[in-house]
């Protein structure tokens, strides 16, 4: 097995585990944990293809990862701020209890 295949399979597994967490968890913060796992799986793919792919003098892979990390940090900050605001109103972060818009 080549290093590229190994990293691609690990990132596939990470993405699947992140998706699984998003689908099965009910705590909003733990859903954010799953989203972070999925984002990191994509970053791992970028680095793996940059390192073991065709020659890339423009550093496209690491550049994507750098911007992706910045966006992910922004997403986590806003997401957690929204969750804290929701918690202040409902005293819960369980998404099953956030049904005030339910008809």
């Amino acid at each position: 097995m080549t290093p590229l295949s190994l990293l691609l399979i690990v990132s596939s597994l990470w993405f699947t585990l992140g998706l699984f967490a998003v689908l099965t968890r009910r705590n909003a913060i733990l859903i954010l944990v799953g989203i972070e796992l999925m984002l990191n799986a994509a970053n791992l793919n970028f680095i793996a293809f940059w390192r073991y792919g065709p020659p890339d003098p423009d550093f496209t892979g690491p550049l994507f990862v750098l911007f992706s990390i910045a966006i992910a940090a922004a997403e986590a900050a806003v997401g957690l701020a929204i969750i804290l605001m929701v918690f202040r109103h409902t005293r819960s972060t369980d998404l099953n209890r956030l049904d005030s818009l339910h008809g």
Partner: peptide
């Protein structure tokens, strides 16, 4: 620095603030 130092710590602090069941 960003993920371990900021995002993971932010998540842990949010869990401590919200006291999940």
């Amino acid at each position: 620095m960003v993920y371990v130092g900021a995002v993971a710590v932010l998540i842990v602090f949010s869990l401590l603030i919200t006291r999940p069941g």
